[in-house]
């Protein structure tokens, strides 16, 4: 039986000066090594949801529990040694090399006067090798592709040696090949390293393929369930406000789910 890594109990969030909750009644539980997708159309507050989850924004009611203990009662450093956040890979302003960037993942483990030492550097290089980006070591983050940058940010998060990794649209703005690389990497991290993963996406197929459970965010509500149960024609059509069909296809002797938007028909 695997342990509960992250739990949200009956949480609601509301922006200041707004009368309605952005979402309410959110409850779910994520075990170690489990993957959870947060799915919703643009502008429904998926990023806001993640920020609430991590305590960057306060829940109006309810709470997040980290390994059974309320997040609020933990110090910043305790939290960020266990949770790692991978922001959207926007183009970078600062010309750090890939290795310098990845080393920043050690920040929660090192005091304000410390600098990364041999062991930290070794960990960074091992992480790079694990993700297959060792050749990028001395390249500048301002000069690498979007897919490469996303891998660098994942490596930076891994360097914190977290139990939980939270990613904001890790595969958006990437081409097919890079998307597959990211999805494969996430799957491997969950299965082999027992890291719990939560990621935002607007691709139902990615949720179906990767996630054990999915949180649908729509109409100021959050619905939680097993991905296979939740992601059906009716729910997806309602979520994205266009008719959508989910079908199973057998390709190369493997069953695969495909999601087909039926916009014009």
């Amino acid at each position: 039986m695997s342990e509960t890594a992250l739990e949200v109990r009956n949480a609601a969030f509301r922006w200041p000066k707004v009368r309605e909750d952005q979402f309410s009644g959110v409850s779910f539980r994520l075990r170690t090594g489990e993957i959870c997708a947060v799915l919703g159309p643009n502008g429904t507050g998926k990023t806001t949801f993640l920020r609430c989850l991590m305590g960057l924004l306060p829940w109006r009611e309810g709470e997040t529990l980290l390994f059974g203990e309320p997040l609020k009662k933990k110090s910043d450093r305790e939290i960020w040694r266990r949770i790692a956040y991978v922001p959207q890979a926007r183009s970078q302003q600062i010309a750090y090399t890939v290795e310098q960037m990845i080393l920043l993942g050690r920040s929660a483990h090192l005091g304000p006067f410390a600098q990364p030492r041999g062991a930290d550097i070794r960990l960074a290089r091992e992480t790079m090798a694990l993700l297959g980006i060792g050749h990028l070591k001395d390249r500048l983050c301002t000069r690498i592709s979007g897919g490469e940058l996303q891998m660098v940010l994942i490596a930076r998060a891994l360097c914190a040696q977290p139990a939980i990794m939270i990613l904001d649209e890790p595969e958006s703005n990437l081409d097919y090949k890079n998307q597959q690389t990211i999805l494969k990497t996430l799957n491997r991290l969950a299965k082999e390293s027992a890291i719990s993963i939560i990621f935002n996406t607007h691709y139902p197929e990615h949720a179906l393929r990767l996630a054990d459970q999915t949180i649908l965010i729509h109409d100021r509500r959050a619905t939680v369930g097993k991905s296979a149960d939740l992601l059906n024609d009716a729910n997806l059509s309602r979520l994205f406000a266009i008719p959508i069909a989910v079908r199973e296809l057998e390709v190369e002797k493997k069953k695969r789910s495909v999601v087909i938007p039926l916009g014009d028909d």
Partner: peptide, 10 residues
């Protein structure tokens, strides 16, 4: 960015 720095434990 502030969010990034904060989530890195600073």
């Amino acid at each position: 960015s502030d969010d990034e720095a904060r989530t890195l434990g600073v």
